[in-house]
Each structure stands twice: as C-alpha cells, then as structure tokens.
C-alpha cells in the first residue's frame, strides 16, 4: 500500500508541545486504521467513529504519560482497545448477563451471548461475504476477536499485540490460534460455497 511514512519522533515532540498541527497530523495518519479496527471489534460504524475520536481525545489529555521511545502506534491501539472494551461492557450492562467460562488453558473469559439482531453496516460491508465474516467475528469472544483482528486484519506483530493487550506473547499466540479455529467453524458454510470442499 502506498501509505505515507511518518516521523514518529517529530510527531511525538509536537504532541508534547500540544501543537494543534501535531494533533491533526496524528489523526490524519491513524484515524482510518483505528476506525477500521474499532468497527471490526465493536461491529457498528458509528460506535467505531466514536471510539476513534475518544482515543484521540485521550491521547491529547494523557500525552504526558506516553514514554518517549515507546511505539506510538501500539499506544494508540491500546487506548482504542480500552475504549472499545468499555463500550462493549456498557452494552452488556444494558443487555445480557455475562457468563464466565474457562478455556482449555485455564484462562477465564466471558462467554458472550451472540446478538442475534446484529446486522453489519452495509455502507462498509457491501458484499454478502463481508457481512457474513463480520457477523462471524462478532460471535467470537472479545479476547479472541481482538487478537484475530489485530493480527490478520491490522497486521500487527505478535509482540505488538502482546503490548496492546498487555498479555504474554504465548497468550497472544494461543488466542490467535483459538480465534482462527472458532472463526473457521463459524464460517464453515461460507467455505463450502467459496471453495467447494468440506472443511475439517
């Protein structure tokens, strides 16, 4: 992709000086990436835009807490993830009761009751295939969903994902593997239609 490069150090300096130009530059560079991540994670375009806006507002407020030398991109993703998780929690409080379950490795996470009324945003996901993949993503528990999105859609490295989610590298790998397996299961019918063979 022909994405322009950015001088992160210079940008960080501008942000520390609270220069509006620096802030605008940061938004110009990362807004689409964050909106896309948030959309795939929370499932609604309007909420995704809200998450991304809130992320930048927090950057502006808490820029002093950013450690020079750290990766700005992972910091942004970590904030966006926290904001998105808060939004999902808020939704849950108004919706279903959380059920905690343990996975094979003894890790506890909330079993999310899939929202049967969920409809992907058709302005973003205009094809049936995209809509079905987004529906399947929304059925994954958040910890697996975020891992798969960050790795396979946003292209972050395992180390970066570990930093964003504040977990060990091993946990990231296992979450990605489990997330992919669950997603394959959910997309079994689509696989058959697209590739014509039964998946294992």
């Amino acid at each position: 992709m022909g994405r322009p490069t950015i001088d992160e150090q210079a940008l960080v300096e501008l942000l520390f000086e609270r220069k509006e130009e620096g802030f605008r530059q940061l938004m110009r560079f990362y807004k689409d990436e964050l909106v896309n991540f948030a959309y795939r994670f929370v499932g609604s375009y309007d909420d995704a835009v809200d998450v991304a806006q809130e992320t930048f507002i927090r950057v502006y407020r808490f820029i002093e807490t950013f450690q020079r030398g750290a990766r700005l991109r992972t910091w942004l993703y970590a904030i966006a993830r926290n904001v998105a998780l808060s939004m999902l929690d808020e939704r849950k409080r108004h919706g279903t009761l959380p059920m905690v379950e343990k996975d094979d490795e003894g890790e506890e996470h909330e079993r999310e009751v899939p929202d049967l009324t969920y409809v992907p945003d058709r302005a973003v996901d205009s094809t049936i295939i995209a809509q079905r993949i987004q529906e399947a993503l929304m059925k994954l528990p958040a910890v697996f969903r975020e891992a798969v999105i960050l790795r396979d859609i946003e292209g972050l490295t395992y180390e970066e994902i570990a930093e964003v989610c504040n977990v060990e590298l091993g946990t990231v790998k296992s979450r990605i593997n489990r997330g992919r397996t669950m997603l394959q299961e959910l997309l079994r019918d689509l696989y058959e239609e697209l590739y014509g063979s039964k998946q294992q």
Partner: peptide, 13 residues
C-alpha cells in the same frame, strides 16, 4: 481465512 479477512473492506473515518 486470512485471505478472506485481508480482503474485507476497510472502514474509513
């Protein structure tokens, strides 16, 4: 699966 995910349209701000 990764090919499918990679082909998903990108939401833009």
């Amino acid at each position: 699966l990764r090919v499918l995910l990679d082909q998903l349209p990108r939401a833009q701000a």
